[in-house]
């Protein structure tokens, strides 16, 4: 009875349109996620995974100091990248949204999309030419009697990689968000005596809050899970969580322990995303 009532209440038309997304999410997100969590309880014997329900992998990972160091480092670097990208992107987005014509803004966004046409790995390796001790930047500052400065295989290198990955995306999201602000609100704030800075903090940032936070969130998510930059530009020195996952699987084939690390990463990202969305949509 209850089931038939429930069936009657389902909107078939809406369900038909939503079904592909639901199927996709179940097949390629939910099912692998459940499998990954289940795998974290498996055991490895003679390099082969055996189905089991043991907490040994969780205990092992939680008891290792290097896991917590990597966790702190990954979170800290991703947070720093988020703050840096947001701060660098804001003036650029402000300019694109308010100072350029519609046509110029479209071109600018097009140019911001262009970096995504090439592989991220290729873009990362291209930094070698610039950042190496014998590279372009050190050669230039060498003429001024400075350096050479070590940039590759450092956290600075990792940060450059993170920004290469995320900055264009953050600028695009911020620009689209700011461009949709009602200009009358800004003019009204000026009429009421607010200067440019006051208008930014009192009108623009609150109005574009959702876009700004979503941009920052994307930056955090992409940086937190990135393997390429900390490995190739940071020299794995010290390793972040994605590198630890690779190390764990490479040696001893400890996929269950890698699943523990991955699950913790997923939970962290979920918490960060939920908090960010809550702040973004909080009523004033």
């Amino acid at each position: 009875m209850i089931f038939s009532n429930w069936l009657r209440r389902i909107d078939g038309y809406a369900l038909t349109w939503r079904l592909p997304v639901i199927i996709w999410q179940v097949l390629f997100f939910l099912a692998p996620l459940v499998f990954m969590i289940a795998m974290s309880f498996f055991l490895v014997k003679n390099y082969q995974m055996k189905e089991a329900f043991e907490f040994v992998n969780w205990v092992k990972i939680f008891s290792k100091g290097y896991f917590w160091s990597s966790y702190g480092l990954s979170f800290g670097l991703a947070f720093l990248a988020t703050i840096t990208a947001t701060c660098i992107a804001f003036p650029a987005s402000y300019c694109l949204a308010f100072k350029l014509s519609e046509t110029a803004r479209r071109w600018a966004i097009f140019f911001l999309i262009i970096p995504f046409f090439t592989s991220y790995l290729v873009r990362t390796f291209s930094w070698y030419v610039l950042l190496a001790e014998s590279g372009v930047i050190n050669n230039i500052i060498g003429y001024l009697g400075i350096g050479p400065i070590k940039m590759l295989n450092t956290m600075f290198g990792t940060m450059i990689g993170y920004l290469t990955l995320t900055l264009p995306l953050v600028i695009i999201l911020q620009t689209l968000s700011m461009a949709s602000i009602d200009k009358n609100l800004i003019e009204a704030s000026h009429n009421l005596g607010a200067g440019r800075v006051r208008a930014i903090f009192s009108v623009i940032i609150p109005s574009a809050r959702i876009g700004l936070i979503i941009g920052a969130l994307f930056c955090f998510i992409l940086s937190f899970g990135d393997f390429v930059s900390p490995y190739y530009l940071g020299g794995s020195n010290p390793p972040t969580l994605p590198i630890l996952i690779i190390d764990t699987t490479k040696s001893g084939q400890q996929w269950p322990r890698a699943a523990v690390i991955a699950t913790i990463m997923m939970v962290t990202l979920m918490l960060v995303a939920l908090s960010a969305i809550k702040i973004a949509y909080k009523k004033r």
């Binding site: 290792k64 100091g65 290097y66 160091s69 794995s236 010290p238 390793p239 630890l244 190390d247 040696s251």
Partner: peptide, 9 residues
């Protein structure tokens, strides 16, 4: 391997 991870971190 555990020690190696510890060393790296």
């Amino acid at each position: 391997n555990d020690f190696w991870s510890e060393y790296k971190s």
